[in-house]
Amino acid sequence: MEAVLLAGIARRVLDELMRNPYRTVEVRSARNVLAVEKALNGPGILFLTYEPFSDVRAGSEGLIAELVKAEEMDTRIPWEESDEREITVCRARVKLLGLGRVVSIEKRNSTVVVKVREMMPHEMGMG
């Protein structure tokens, strides 16, 4: 199965998604915001992992989720706290499909698409 990669997701978010199959995930990373946009126009499937982008490789484990809905919001921040005045936040409503392991990785334009194999819970080493 092909999925768009969302990396660096907090462990508590992944744990909450395991307990409740529907959740809204808020992402701020430019890579993750672009990945959600790509998933909206493409396969609609996301692979969420705790690992940062630079560490994702064949064998990386995470969660497979369907993108149900997404919305982007621009948020202003005080200029004293940052060199930027605005950040883009994306709220993505997802539905857990299962556990997965990366089989292969492919970079397409500015997003990373992974082929994942669905796993059984006893195969998962994450956590």
Rank of each mutant, 00 (worst) to 15 (best):
I105Q: 00
P121C: 01
P52H: 01
C90H: 03
V113A: 08
V112S: 03
V116I: 14
L14Q: 13
E61Y: 09
W79I: 13
L14S: 02
I64M: 11
N109E: 15
I45Y: 00
V102I: 11
V36P: 03
E81C: 00
G42E: 07
S29N: 11
I64V: 15
I9K: 07
N32P: 08
S82V: 04
E66P: 00
D74G: 04
G59L: 02
L5D: 04
P43T: 14
N20F: 11
R93Y: 01
N109Y: 15
L34I: 02
E51F: 12
S110F: 15
I105A: 09
V36N: 04
H122Q: 06
V36R: 07
L5N: 01
E72N: 02
N32F: 03
I45F: 06
A92F: 00
L34H: 08
V89C: 08
I105G: 02
I9S: 03
G100I: 08
G62W: 04
S60F: 00
L46K: 10
M73V: 00
L17K: 10
N32G: 09
V4R: 02
L48W: 06
A58Y: 09
A30T: 15
V27N: 06
E61P: 04
A30N: 09
M126K: 10
V33R: 07
A92E: 07
V56G: 11
V102E: 11
E84L: 11
K107I: 14
V89W: 08
I45G: 06
L34M: 14
M126T: 07
